[in-house]
Simulated assay, not measured.
Amino acid sequence: MKIVVTGSLGNVSKPLAQRLTQEGHAVTVISSKPDKQPDIEALGATAAIGSVEDADFLATAFAGADAVYVMIPPNFTEPDQVAYYRRLGNNYAHAIRQAGVKRVVGLSSWGAHLDRGTGPILGSHHVEGILNELPSVALTHLRPTSFYTNLYGFVGMIKGAGFIGANYGGDDKVAMVHPRDIADAAAEELTASAAPGQHIRYVSSDECTCNEAARALGAAIGKPDLAWVLFTDEQMQESLEKNGVPASVATGVVELYASIHNGRLGEDYEQHKPVMGKVKLADFAKEFAAAF
């Protein structure tokens, strides 16, 4: 198959491209950075250098593809995250129509079923809606749970304050996923036959409470008493802004974390749980310790 992968050599896109090329597919990886071309070609893939902000470039890159994987690259400099998601979602939809692609796998998020109260994930809700308007396309929305790799964002707090803190924590239950497990799910979907229409697949690796996550990470880094402290929304907003996060972006993060704390983010996931992936919390704790 001829498959196009967006996301350059990111945490999901790189292992996805690796798996697809190893399986013998002709893979094109889209990247905005020319210096990534040698690394993409080293995987056995073709590099298409350009911006996902350019819908015509995308249409050219998608031409002749049997399947495409689309994702919205994180860009926290955008003051309106939802508008950013909608803009790129429309670019993808334009390119898919122009190129006549019939199989599409999109990286979405748990919580994308909600039309309010999820901070930046509201962008994924809108992108799903935009892509759902595509006619005669077999479309799978991948809805991963919280990325393990998001926990790297707490390294500075652990080193400086000696604990993890957010406006979700304690005994709050969280489903977490490793990018490699998302890549495996994406590869399966891209290469499987599917009827036209919309399909949803949740992807998760493990489930735990925040306290359990803190204990696992703490044990791995030699801090067995590491705690995950539950902040108020106001404390979380203040903490983010003190660390240089723009107020509008911080507000979105606080809203997202609050939806984990109150359970709304995971309500649909709880009704459609997937088979868990391979990388468990204990496995990721070793990766975290190596980076710590």
Score class of each variant (00 low, 15 high):
Val4Tyr: 00
Val5Ala: 01
Thr6Trp: 01
Gly7Glu: 04
Gly7Thr: 05
Ser8Thr: 03
Ala17Tyr: 07
Arg19Leu: 09
Ala26His: 09
Val27Gly: 03
Val27Ala: 02
Thr28Gly: 05
Ser31Pro: 00
Lys33Thr: 15
Lys33Ala: 14
Pro34Leu: 06
Asp35Pro: 04
Lys36Gln: 15
Gln37Phe: 12
Asp39Trp: 00
Asp39Lys: 05
Ala42Cys: 03
Leu43Pro: 08
Ala45Pro: 00
Ala48Cys: 14
Ile49Trp: 07
Gly50Arg: 06
Asp54Pro: 13
Asp56Ile: 14
Asp56Lys: 15
Leu58Phe: 14
Phe62Gly: 01
Ala63Gly: 14
Ala65Glu: 11
Ala67Pro: 10
Ala67Thr: 10
Tyr69Asn: 01
Met71Gln: 07
Pro73Cys: 07
Pro74Ser: 13
Glu78Gln: 15
Gln81Pro: 08
Leu88Asn: 04
Gly89Glu: 07
Gly89Thr: 11
Asn91Ala: 13
His94Cys: 10
Ile96Ala: 06
Ile96Met: 08
Gln98Pro: 08
Ala99Leu: 11
Trp110Arg: 12
Ala112Tyr: 01
Leu114Thr: 02
Leu114Ala: 11
Thr118Leu: 05
His126Gly: 05
His126Phe: 14
Val127Trp: 00
Gly129Met: 10
Ile130Pro: 04
Leu134Lys: 09
Pro135Asp: 12
Thr140Asn: 01
Leu142Phe: 07
Pro144Gln: 05
Thr145Met: 01
Thr145Glu: 02
Tyr148Met: 04
Tyr148Arg: 03
Gly156Asp: 04
Gly156His: 02
Ile158Val: 14
Gly162Thr: 11
Phe163Pro: 05
Ala166Tyr: 02
Asn167Tyr: 01
Tyr168Trp: 11
Asp171Trp: 05
Asp172Val: 05
Asp172His: 07
Ala175Asn: 02
Pro179Gln: 09
Ile182Arg: 00
Ala185Thr: 13
Ala186Val: 03
Ala187Arg: 01
Ala192His: 10
Ala192Lys: 13
Pro196Trp: 00
Gly197Met: 12
His199Pro: 08
Arg201Met: 09
Ser205Trp: 07
Cys208Phe: 07
Thr209Trp: 08
Glu212Phe: 06
Ala214Met: 09
Ala214Thr: 09
Arg215Gln: 13
Ala219Asn: 15
Ala220Arg: 00
Ile221Gly: 05
Pro224Ile: 11
Leu226Ala: 03
Ala227Met: 14
Val229Glu: 06
Leu230Arg: 09
Leu230Ser: 06
Phe231Gln: 06
Asp233Ala: 12
Asp233Cys: 04
Glu234Gly: 13
Gln235Ser: 04
Met236Ile: 02
Glu238Lys: 14
Glu238Leu: 12
Glu238Pro: 00
Lys242Thr: 13
Asn243Met: 13
Gly244His: 12
Pro246Ala: 14
Ala250Thr: 03
Gly252Asp: 11
Val254Asn: 01
Tyr257Pro: 00
His261Leu: 02
Asp268Cys: 01
Asp268Leu: 06
Tyr269Gln: 06
Gln271Gly: 06
His272Cys: 06
Gly277Glu: 00
Gly277Ser: 02
Gly277Leu: 00
Lys278Phe: 10
Lys278Cys: 08
Phe288Asn: 07
Ala289Met: 12
Phe292Thr: 07
